[in-house]
Amino acid sequence: MSANHEDRHQSPASLDRALRLGIGGPVGSGKTALVAALCRTLGPVLRLGVVTNDIYTTEDADFLRRAGVLDPERIVAVQTGCCPHTAIRDDIAANIDAVETLEERFGPLDLVIVESGGDNLTATFSRGLADQQIFVLDVSGGDKVPRKGGPGVTTADLLVVNKTDLAKHVGADLTVMSRDAAAVRDGKPVLFTSIREVPEVYAVAEWVHGVVESWAHARAHHPHGPAVPSTNA
């Protein structure tokens, strides 16, 4: 094996790059809305890139480009051939390629957000693709969803329960959702949002900013170290 300068390709855990944040969750829960909100709130303070995994067309990428929250060139769409979960978990090659293309073109970046194409409750990001991941649910799926668990709900670094503005209309009890989520998540954070009513998503943005800072801190102190920062502090 030769040592050469492209060897960052060889090591997914290398810190010599932006933090990669996966945003997953069922179709329609508000992932794209959250990406737009994060770009709006964090765009002024962080160097960002976004990868979308549209199921068909480039709908999400187009929405984000139109929203004007980020330089359209910094938004890249990946097509997943009917397999959105494969592209974020089993065969992440196209997403890695998109992330690295963004970093080569616009780097150095602080944060690259990868939005999944939307799937069921079992879909999570490979650790080879995302350093941290947010799982987005919405209250209209019913207040039983957190109790049912599934890898997304139980293992994501942050669980976001969106569309709290709809809770009263669908008869969802947020206290129940909060209690059940806490029970299956072993202390990992849960945040409730209404992106419709509070488009700045302050609390989520603060969490993201925190993990990016730990990442940058780790990068500064162990430029070649394999350590992944802990965010549960």
Binding site: V78, Q79, T80, G81, C83, T86, A87, D90, D91, I92, A93, A94, D97
Partner: peptide
């Protein structure tokens, strides 16, 4: 086809 090299996205 499980070789993780992006083949699933091409028809």
């Amino acid at each position: 086809s499980r070789l993780p090299a992006g083949g699933h996205g091409h028809s």
